[in-house]
């Protein structure tokens, strides 16, 4: 065995790294959720469904603007040297996922706003007639709407993947050293977005369609989690120990009960029964999916920081 004792006890670093608190999981969750909304809205706009004023999917970019702004604010709160945050935009660091993320957001905001303006909600059409005029103008240009939809879809997928790659690029934390984190967070974001529309959609056919889509995303998410764990458990000792945090270690209960059980498996069963007309559609499933998406980010961010390459360290 190896016993390592060190005299260092730096704030945020010892006895294990805990540099990121609630702000980062909240940002990653909101970013992923908005990415899912952009992808869904983009897909529906691509399909020409924006003309359907009862379609809820194409309204989600409006919520997306608010949620993404909240996420950005959480990210800002996390910064330790806040007055220099503008330094993100004086350079582009090609090897830094965080720099990519900062610039992706610059492109995402206009795309999100464009996707939103395709179909303003009724109250906004009445309150600001210019939005009504703009929406009518866009409605007569289907090619432009398709382009806006495509941009929203592609950028949504990029944003969703980015939220996972941000962590997986930090090789010093073995739990995060997996390219599966990108697709996993994207699928979780898509599933939370589909769950939200399932929850609030006005029309039954859209509700059922999104419940089915959500079930597909949830199954793919389960598969991604299995691959994620297999990848870690068959790699180096450090990666095996990292996987152990979720397979018997301190994060096992919250991961398997909170994220996998209540966040994926139970809602998958509930929603599968609902789309087969065995039970009524209930808000329970979608709410659990959305809460599970948040829990996933918390578990991965917190457990990942505990994972390490060094032997177990003890302080004086």
């Amino acid at each position: 065995m190896t016993e390592l004792l060190i005299t260092r006890s730096n704030h945020l670093v010892d006895p294990y790294v805990h540099v990121w608190a609630w702000q980062i999981p909240v940002y990653l969750f909101l970013g992923g959720w908005v990415a899912g909304m952009m992808s869904l809205a983009g897909y529906f706009q691509w399909q020409g469904r924006h003309r359907d004023r009862q379609c809820t999917c194409v309204l989600t970019p409006w919520l997306g603007v608010v949620l993404l702004s909240l996420g950005m604010f959480a990210l800002f709160l996390d910064l330790e040297h806040k007055r220099y945050f503008w330094r993100l935009y004086t350079t582009f660091e090609i090897a830094s996922p965080m720099s990519w993320g900062a610039w992706i957001l610059v492109v995402v905001y206009p795309a999100l706003l464009a996707a939103a303006l395709v179909q303003p909600p009724q109250w906004l059409r009445r309150a600001v007639p210019a939005t009504e005029a703009l929406a009518s103008w866009l409605e007569s240009r289907p090619a432009l709407v398709r382009a806006v939809g495509l941009a929203s879809l592609v950028l949504g997928l990029a944003l969703g993947i980015y939220t996972g790659i941000l962590l997986s690029a930090l090789g010093a934390r073995p739990l995060w050293s997996s390219a599966i984190l990108g697709p996993l967070f994207l699928l979780s974001g898509l599933s939370s977005a589909a769950a939200f529309v399932h929850l609030v959609a006005r029309r039954r056919d859209e509700r059922v369609f999104l419940a089915r889509a959500d079930n597909l995303f949830l199954m793919l998410e389960l598969a991604a989690i299995v691959l994620f764990l297999i990848g870690l458990a068959t790699a180096t000792e450090a990666h095996k120990q990292a996987a152990g945090l979720l397979l018997g270690g301190p994060y096992t209960a919250v991961f398997w009960v909170g994220v996998v059980g209540l966040g994926i498996a139970v809602p998958l069963v509930v929603q599968s029964l609902a789309v087969r007309h065995r039970i009524q559609h209930t808000p329970l499933g979608p709410i659990m999916v959305i809460a599970g998406g948040l829990a996933l980010r918390f578990v991965i961010v917190y457990a990942g920081q505990v994972s390490h390459w060094a032997p177990q360290v003890a302080q004086f």
């Binding site: 670093v13 990121w20 010093a172 060094a310």
Partner: peptide, 22 residues
């Protein structure tokens, strides 16, 4: 430096810390 702490998380030696000035 904006104090994003990605470098703290990226260092396998945990050699970095945040100075009280940020």
């Amino acid at each position: 430096c904006i104090g994003c702490k990605a470098c703290l998380a990226s260092c396998p030696y945990d050699a970095r810390f945040v100075h009280p000035e940020g």
